[in-house]
Structures are given as C-alpha cells and as structure tokens.
Design a binder for these strands. Sequence first.
DNA 1: TGTCATGTATTATATATAGTACACATTAAG
DNA 2: CTTAATGTGTACTATATATAATACATGACA
Lengths: 117, 117
Amino acid sequence: MTHFGKHIRSRREDLRKHDRRFSLRQVAQRIEVEPAYLSKIERGDVAPPSEATTLKLARDLGEDQDVLLALAGKVSSDLQEIIRKRPKLFADLIRKMKEAPDHAILRIVREVRDGEW
Amino acid sequence: MTHFGKHIRSRREDLRKHDRRFSLRQVAQRIEVEPAYLSKIERGDVAPPSEATTLKLARDLGEDQDVLLALAGKVSSDLQEIIRKRPKLFADLIRKMKEAPDHAILRIVREVRDGEW
DNA sequence: TGTCATGTATTATATATAGTACACATTAAG
DNA sequence: CTTAATGTGTACTATATATAATACATGACA
C-alpha cells in the first residue's frame, strides 16, 4: 500500500544506531508479534497491522500515534467514536475544514482551548 | 450491536404506509442485496452492512448518510481520508471539539463557511 | 380459492484480516 | 571459530466480513 513499512524500518534503523535494542526481533518481542510478521510488515509484504499493534509500534518507536495510524491507512477509533456521537456536526465541520490552511485550523484549536464559546 | 436494524425497519415501514415500493424485497432489489440479507440486517441478525450498502440504503430511504453510517458504527471513508492527510491537526481539532457544545461547533462551521481566515 | 407477494430460516461461501510457527541462511560478537 | 543473534521464506490458521442461493410459511387480493 503506502510506505508504512519503509517508514518504520528506517525509523527503527535510525534508533538502532544508538541502541541495540531496536533490532527487528527485539521490537517484535516488545510489541508482541512474531519477528517474521514484523519483517513482512516492514517490507510491505503484508498490509499494515491492526490498530492495537500499530499503537504499540508507535509507542516503541517514539512516533506520533495518529500519524502512524494515518500511514497505516486508519483513523484512531477514539476519534471515530467522537464523530459517530454527533455525525452531522462533525461531518460538516471536517468537510468544511478540508480546504482550510493549517494555520486556520490551528487558530480554531487555540480558540477552543482558550474556552472561547 | 446498536439499533441500526430497528431504525431502518421502522423507517422503511413508515415510508411504506404511503408507498408500496418500500417492501423489504423491493428495497433489497434497489440497493442490490438479497432480501434474506436485508431481512437479517433489519432484525439485527447480522452486523450492519458495508459502507457502500449502507450508503445505498440511506439514499433509498432518504436518510442522512453520515447519520446512518454512524448508526452502523462507521465513519465515512471520505472523512477518514481528510483526517489521514493531516492527522495531527485533525486529531487535535476533533479531540478538542469533543466537549464543545453543538452551538460552538456550528459557529465555527459558519465562520469557516464565511471564509474567515 | 388460487396466485402472488411478503418476510424469514437455513446453508454455504468468497475474501479479507491479523496474525503464528518453524526452519534456514547470514551476520556479529566473544 | 563457534555461538548467538539477526532478518526472512514458506506454510498454515482462526476469525470476521459481507454477502448469495434456495426454499418455505403466511397473508393479501382479485
């Protein structure tokens, strides 16, 4: 699919330069999958793993969870739940935001954080 | 799962009061599934159908697509795609909006529509 | 009263998802 | 030099997803 595999492989290899515990086998063990499976994931031989496994991987490699999920072609289930609770409102909001530049979205996030409602 | 089945059954039966074309069989034919399958969906005997089938159903029954997808436990793939393109930004936005009251979100949608950036 | 339409029960199935298990060749380390 | 660790090939599997096909009992209707 995407370059999910390439991404985590290069990230893992970067980390390994300074820390031997980032061998494929040791990462696999920590995130509780078989080494052969992680190998296939990194080479793009299989589709990206489940949300749960992707999250463990993000934690282990120190990556942003939402970004890694996105690379895996997924959207975090907690976000989905928020949307599903008020589908019209959020669908509308998100579609409107589609074309908005980053800074506009950031401004809104800041406004909301500062409790401006 | 949820009351997806109940919901569409009652909606369909309401429509049928004024239009005989809303029998289970005829709806099934229009949305291109087997009557037996639609029957099972309505009775909650199986999980809600795929996104594609749910959308056809929404169109046929004149329901809001995002709302019906939400009842099916899903989030529209076009929304997911928007989020995946800027995962950090949107994850942040949506989580911040989680607690916001409807009117606050509506206000933002309006502001964005009016091009306030 | 027979036929037509309705909803449903049962059985089957193709494809996708998410991995495991094990063996093997190569490389690195003591 | 040999032991231990590394990455990978191959084969297999369990569960879920999303439906199809057929047959059947009941009720409407003409």
